[in-house]
Design a protein around this nucleic acid. Structure first.
Length: 603
RNA sequence: GGGGACGUAGCUCAAUUGGUUAGAGUACCGGCCUGUCACGCCGGUGGUUGCGGGUUCGAGUCCCGUCGUCCUCGCCA
């Protein structure tokens, strides 16, 4: 196996170069053994007569000692790939390196072979200093050599393996679904793949395996899961890539509770097996309505209080015309009590008001209660009984700060929800424990003001709580769906729903979304037909694995847990994808570019 | 698509108000050194200041455009 092309570089070409141990495993018990190590030259220290090499592989770093006969014969550079053989020796006590697991031994080499040379690395592999993402992504194979990065991907592998094991224990079956599939009208922008065989027709990459997993339920698979790659052609973010991985699952003959218990068990076992963590189960559950009323958002961070308080009763009878009129119009007045232990200066409150206005509020009414009545814009209206009533409503004490917003319900929720998050961040409350929660009973539909039509809040295959969907002329804004999210510390980890297993209900939902009978047949005919062949009641869920793995390592950017991520402009700096293709290649798939040649070659 | 920040040596950064030959650390190359592990010491190479244009006696610095990276809003059923 010794490559003859490198034999000129070697000292003992007849010897087998393959390793007997990794660079992370030699300890005192191996002292005296003859070993061969393979790895990368991590660092060199030349002391004239004695030459030290830190040899690195995935498992660790072992110090190799070369005498002058070897170090003079073979010239090493950083990141050369080498094979060394020699004897394991114990270090003198004063030479032990306590910072390394292998620090009690050396390998004294009598054979050294260069398996592969390296150009000067674009950046040091043992860097303490941050290297720009641009450079790291261009030389991703060098970046991935860094022990910290290898740790991330080993963790990811262990984590997903533990999750797969947990599903297998519960009798789930992993089934692969197509990557080349059918474009869907709703949802994110599709990636399209032109068909060579069918001129003018296109496949789409799946945004998720949604319809296939439902079809698998119709097929009687009963319990399906998959580590599934999903594709959405939307703009990228720190926590969003064009292609991402979901742990996708679906179950038959179940309701919400079964999904929740299954996932609680899976996550408990995953964190236990992959990380030795004891995640408390079951997770608390709250309705979407409760989440919005208490936290102003549908992904509440439960690690701190600062909950929203409804002030309608107080505002209805107060002397502050703005609040009174707001309630009279049927809108909302709500507040947050910031306890005295987190005092806010006038300047800080002004900053919060500015933030509130930037997210749509007309103003931020505040009050600092004191025995004399207090200060702030609201203090005029809080004298005597009115002040006592407001205190009672909020549980407010002297020294607290009360922040109030009035307006339409959606605006009040959004503004106070944002303020709450900002305050949590400001007072450094968003830290520590892992607080999972299920959020259930989302609205079925949302009205889009721009397009003037109804959209599914989750997706069009989500079952309504009321199968009759409110009868003949339903108020769509009040219909409740059986969709649910899993939320962790203010992040949406995943979502799912009980599905529609009745063809008639599915058709009704499509109609509400403005998808007529003809389009239904063309786009979703296979689903409607499948639902007409004895579809079992079923429900499912999917969780974003990139985010979950990042989060489990305390990272807020998924690029360090994705091996080959794309930049914010959706480019791969290593391969230079996307890139132009030859005209012949386009012709073969019946495509002609309408982009002027002048802007086709940016680089 | 909008807003913001940034772009100087292989890497990480500096360069006063627009003013001499654009510097430092590190890496790399050469030399010395037998116990280092961020080795040390001596010497050296290395620059289209992202790119294009403009203002100016003079531009890394100011202006316009463009490309790229990051953050963010829109978007992400």
């Amino acid at each position: 196996m010794t490559p003859s092309s490198t034999s000129a570089l070697t000292t003992h070409t007849k010897t087998d170069w393959r390793r007997t141990h990794t660079c992370g495993e030699l300890r005192k018990p191996e002292v005296g053994s003859r070993v061969t190590l393979n790895g990368w030259v991590h660092a060199r220290r030349d002391h004239g007569g004695v030459y030290f090499v830190d040899l690195r592989d995935r498992y660790g770093i072992t110090q190799v000692v070369l005498g002058p006969e070897l170090s003079d014969a073979v010239k090493l550079g950083p990141e050369f790939t080498i094979s060394v053989s020699g004897r394991v020796v114990a270090r003198e006590p004063h030479n032990v390196n306590p910072n390394r697991p292998t620090g009690e031994i050396d390998v004294v080499a009598d054979r050294l072979e260069i398996l592969s040379r390296s150009n000067t690395p674009p950046f040091p592999i043992d860097a303490d200093e941050e290297v720009s993402f641009e450079t790291r992504l261009k030389y991703r194979y060098m970046d991935l050599r860094r022990p910290a990065m290898q740790k991330n991907f080993i963790h990811r592998s262990r984590f997903i393996h533990a999750m797969r094991r947990a599903f297998e224990r519960q009798n789930f079956v992993e089934v692969e679904t197509p990557i080349l599939t059918k474009a869907t009208p709703e949802g994110a922008r599709d990636f399209l793949v032109p068909s060579r065989v069918h001129p003018g027709e296109f496949y789409a990459l799946p945004q998720s395996p949604q319809l296939f997993k439902q079809i698998l339920m119709v097929a009687g698979m009963d319990r399906y899961y998959q580590v599934a790659r999903c594709f959405r052609d939307e703009d990228l973010r720190a926590d969003r890539q064009l292609e991402f991985t979901q742990l996708d699952m679906e179950m038959s003959f179940v309701e919400e509770d079964d999904i929740f218990r299954t996932w609680e068990q899976v996550l408990h076992e995953t964190f236990r097996d992959a990380m030795g963590l004891d995640v408390a189960i079951p997770f608390p559950r709250m309705s979407w309505k409760e989440a919005m009323e208490r936290f102003g958002v549908d992904k509440p961070d439960l690690r701190y209080g600062l909950e929203l308080v409804d002030l309608a009763d107080w505002a209805r009878t107060c002397e502050f015309a703005v609040f009174k009129d707001t309630i009279a119009r049927g809108e909302r007045v709500m507040g947050i009590r910031v306890p005295a232990q987190h005092p806010l200066t006038r300047k800080e409150i002004d900053g919060l008001e500015e933030q509130a206005k930037s997210t749509g509020a007309k103003g931020l009414a505040w009050w600092k209660p004191t025995a004399e009545g207090g200060s702030g814009p609201l203090s005029k209206f809080t004298t005597g009984a009115a002040g006592l009533a407001l205190r009672a409503r909020l549980g407010a004490q002297d020294g607290d700060t009360v922040l109030c917003v009035a307006g339409k319900q959606s605006l009040v929720w959004r503004v106070l929800g944002d303020l709450r998050v900002a305050l949590g961040k400001k007072f450094d409350l968003a830290k520590g424990e892992w607080r999972f929660t299920w959020v259930t009973s989302f609205p079925m539909f949302e009205f889009d003001e721009t397009e003037k039509r109804w959209f599914s809040a989750h997706h069009p295959f989500t079952a309504p709580v009321d199968w009759s969907m409110g009868g003949e002329a339903p108020d769509l804004s009040t219909l409740v769906s059986r969709a649910y999210d899993l939320v962790l510390n203010g992040w949406e980890l995943g979502s799912g729903s009980v599905r529609i297993h009745r063809s008639d209900v599915q058709q009704k939902v499509f109609s509400i979304l403005g998808i007529g009978p003809e389009e239904q047949k063309q786009k979703f005919g296979f689903l409607l037909e499948a639902l007409s062949f004895g579809a079992p009641p079923h429900a499912g869920f999917a969780i974003g694995l990139d985010r979950l793995c990042a989060m489990s390592l305390g990272m807020d950017n998924i690029r360090d847990i994705v091996a080959f991520p794309k930049t914010a402009s959706a480019a791969c700096l290593m391969t230079d994808a996307p890139s132009p293709v030859a005209p012949e290649q386009l012709a073969e798939v019946h495509i002609r570019s309408v982009v002027p040649p002048s802007i086709q070659q940016p680089s």
